[in-house]
């Protein structure tokens, strides 16, 4: 548990999927302090995706509360949850992060499209996107390239730039390095840490790779914070 004020706090959260073998997840308590770098470790089926969906507000708990930046996500309407997510969370997926037909610039600026407050924090979107790309080690002319033409490693960096632009309070990375080779993994994580720190954001990375643990402030096992249950299908 972090020592500073919480950016994210889950309390007594309970959720049960319908029609998926009734998979259920209970999270009695879990929080992340502001600017903390947390690695959430868990095997497949441990409920990581359900937990991320709860944090992002695409599903709401049947019981308990999910507080992000002090706001109970479940108390918001569906539309406000979508906007809240856009304003407060930068997301990086495992792979297939980008719209392949759009330019790198459009992909990066897409995260500002539905987040007016975040957009207002970026005075010069194009220059900011350019700087982020440069800082993440992407070639100078990347902005105008079609996202689908980049290598997987480059696409992950563009996804990181998209998550970081506008400095959202929380960056969630869902196994962002699993599609990368070892050397690229290390470089990517270094860059991600550096840029997250520069943006003043908190980082929650989900992975099943325990070797990444030393690089984080705190490592949390899914099994320690959550109980899962699966009814017979």
């Amino acid at each position: 548990m972090g020592s500073g004020p919480s950016i994210l706090a889950l309390k007594g959260v309970s959720y049960r999927w319908s029609g998926r073998g009734s998979f259920a997840l209970d999270v009695p308590a879990f929080s992340i302090a502001t600017s903390e770098r947390v690695l959430l470790l868990g095997e497949s089926g441990s409920g990581k995706s359900t937990l991320l969906s709860l944090i992002c507000g695409t599903i709401t708990p049947h019981a308990g509360s999910v507080l992000l930046s002090g706001t109970d996500i479940a108390s918001l309407s569906a539309g406000k949850r979508d906007r809240f997510r856009a304003e407060h969370i930068g997301l990086i997926f495992q792979q297939f992060n980008l719209l392949p037909y759009a330019t790198v610039l459009d992909n990066i600026l897409l995260s500002l499209r539905f987040a007016p407050q975040r957009r207002a924090r970026v005075a010069h979107p194009q220059q900011t996107a350019q700087k982020l790309c440069m800082d993440l080690g992407l070639p100078k002319d990347t902005l105008t390239a079609q996202a689908g033409t980049l290598s997987v490693g480059q696409q992950q960096r563009v996804a990181a730039a998209r998550a970081l632009i506008g400095a959202p309070p929380l960056i969630i990375a869902d196994e962002p390095t699993s599609a990368l080779d070892a050397a690229t993994q290390a470089t990517f994580l270094d860059l991600l840490f550096e840029q997250t720190r520069n943006a003043g954001s908190t980082l929650l990375m989900v992975s099943h790779d325990a070797r990444l643990a030393p690089q984080f402030d705190r490592v949390v096992q899914m099994a320690d914070i959550a109980r899962t249950a699966q009814a017979a299908a």
């Binding site: 992002c56 695409t58 569906a78 539309g79 979508d82 906007r83 997510r85 856009a86 304003e87 997301l91 997926f93 297939f96 992060n97 980008l98 719209l99 897409l110 995260s111 499209r113 539905f114 987040a115 998209r162």
Partner: peptide, 16 residues
């Protein structure tokens, strides 16, 4: 579906 998931992750409402 992936494309729609990306848009949703960026805050696009289903009606978008």
């Amino acid at each position: 579906r992936r494309e729609m998931a990306i848009l949703r992750a960026m805050g696009a409402r289903p009606r978008v």
